[in-house]
Design a protein around this nucleic acid. Structure first.
Lengths: 341, 341
DNA sequence: ATTGGCACTCAGATCCATTGAGTGCTAATA
DNA sequence: TATTAGCACTCAATGGATCTGAGTGCCAAT
């Protein structure tokens, strides 16, 4: 479709623009790269690119800037992404090796990724989807309160404090816990709801009131667990890129803080050839994010993809290194979760 | 010290400046407020205020702007703060009544506060200081892994997954848990360290290796618990106030994301007459925050102050309503924690 | 102590000329 | 046919120069 040299010109324009943040013109292009042709020829090529809407001129007589479509073609042409430096690898490993607690692992991961990329980093909590119950625990706190815990095989732990106004007996709690674990351990979260209800109904005698108090809370925990959640880090990195945003950054920050929106966005994305998924500029459906790009990869727990991790930044970002970093972090995360979780 | 009318003039200047964001001059002052004197007289008063460094002129011939010292005098003169509207009260109660889980309560509180004030809101997790062990739990996850939990009386729950490469026996775990709870429940966190070590030493036979594996992790949990932690919400509210900051907001955002700095800042603050503590502009020691003010109040759990909650925003903020909101939220939080935690 | 009057200041808006990077087009060239 | 040199043209950005008006400080009068 598009001849060879013009394509090279496009790549050069993207790279120069990312580096310099100035619209790039034919002359500076020929002197920075060795195309072996004159500026006039480059201009002809640029005319082709403009025809294809891959680049655009901010004003009649000035250099060109890549369009979303231009960036898209650029990344699709990327044959290899920038690998992490040894130092960066060490840094990630150091971050991730410290902990085997899911909360901590994720929060360290997201911080590491944001420092690595100088962008806003995000990580999605493992979603319930295929998660199942690993263990249910009921702990006595004092004579009128219990702590109910749900542990899923994705490593997520959720707890809730229950008031039992009438008090309870230790033996009953023990029995209920055993009942719950026997019937629920290993079951998918989706099944829990139905099973738990029958337990409440089937239980008899002294246990019944306790069961009827506990099971609804258990369901609430399952629900809370299915509420997808995102962890953010490095919001100020966006602010530092202030002038990459027309008008003000504030709507962008708002949109990013809006979990629901972000979740929808990243859950619709599908990995491409590099194991990462990209949305560039207006390719995403959120208006406030029309001048940002999102780089996402999935991470896995025990072989099945469970959630995503990535960065979000101005369209004018260094795609190559960001893709590399996101991919690497996703891999380390998978490794770290598979190993000790 | 400062005569009556000039003081009134100062208040008017602060209020007008907060509302209009423009330096305020003598003429607009006399027409917006009824001082019963002429502009020239106001000018004389303003000269006094300027002499006292309560106001300052951005450039030789323009209106005046309050200095940090001016804001300080203004808030110290505040006899009453703006009470919350009925709707706002309902909103807070709705937010807080939903949950008895500490994590959730705090995260909802901080979100509520940020929406109420349109500022960045922050809440400090209950600090260990006077916290003590409520319960220690060890849960079997599978045959090679245990989940260790520490629950403090401030309601904070901390957990960690332990690999036990050699496996373990259920009975041993049971015994160890009982030992730990007997000797540690009710003890202050500071004491835990010493006691736990003697347990590891005193334990004999089969339990010893397990105890030696578990107690260090328990200490690590205590340490993690003593790491103070802050929850933030509404960062984008700062961005919306962009032009209240000279240069760029990005260093401000960075400073706010720096937990250590913030913690130091708020832990040094002491409540004043309104039950709130204020730092205005350069009164705080963090350079990047020199054009922000911090409004903080303490909240309590079972009668003793345990941590703080507040907002941070541009010096040019509506002190009256922010103080009101922070104070109210702190009270609701205390109530909510005292009641169900 | 307060006020009207007045000369003075200075940030910000408006207008204008200049500059220069960059373009599109054309005619010549390989 | 693809490339190139040359040239006229465009237009954002820059830097005065000028104007305006809100606001001041000060003084003499009340």
């Amino acid at each position: 479709m598009i001849p060879d040299r013009p394509l090279e010109v496009l790549k050069a324009i993207v790279r120069d623009y990312i580096a310099s943040k100035e619209p790039v013109g034919s002359k500076s292009l020929v002197e920075r790269h060795s195309f072996g042709v004159s500026a006039a020829t480059i201009r002809n090529d640029m005319a082709i690119l403009e025809e294809e809407e891959l680049i655009v001129a901010p004003h009649t007589s000035s250099g060109r800037v890549p369009t979303d479509k231009g960036y898209r073609m650029f990344v699709d042409q990327l044959s290899e992404v920038k690998p992490l430096s040894a130092a960066e690898k060490v840094a990630i490993e150091g971050f991730l090796s410290k902990s085997s607690d899911l909360d901590e692992t994720l929060s360290q991961t997201v911080r590491a990724l944001s420092q690595l990329t100088n962008q806003v980093a995000l990580v999605q909590y493992p979603s319930l989807g295929r998660a199942s119950v690993r263990h249910i625990e009921i702990i006595s706190i004092d004579d009128k309160r219990l702590l109910l815990m749900l542990i899923t095989d994705s490593g997520r732990i959720q707890q809730h404090v229950l008031d039992i106004p009438g008090g309870y007996e230790a033996g009953d709690v023990e029995k209920l816990r055993n009942m719950l674990n026997e019937s629920l351990t290993g079951k998918g979260l989706a099944e829990v709801s139905a099973i738990a209800k029958t337990i409440a109904q089937k239980s008899t005698g002294k246990i019944k009131p306790l069961a009827e108090r506990v099971t609804p809370e258990l369901l609430a925990l399952v629900d809370a667990n299915s509420q997808e959640k995102i962890l953010l880090a490095g919001t100020s990195n966006l602010a530092r890129r202030e002038d990459d945003f027309p008008g003000s950054i504030s709507p962008v920050l708002e949109a990013i803080e809006e979990q629901v929106v972000l979740l929808k966005l990243i859950s619709e994305m599908q990995a491409d050839q590099h194991g990462v998924s990209l949305l560039i500029g207006r390719e995403n459906s959120v208006d406030a994010l029309s001048s940002t790009s999102v780089v996402i990869s999935g991470y896995e727990n025990q072989g099945s993809e469970i959630a995503r991790v990535g960065v979000i930044g101005p369209t004018r970002m260094d795609y190559s290194s960001n893709i590399g970093a996101v991919r690497a972090v996703a891999r380390y995360l998978t490794k770290s979760l598979g190993g000790s979780q």
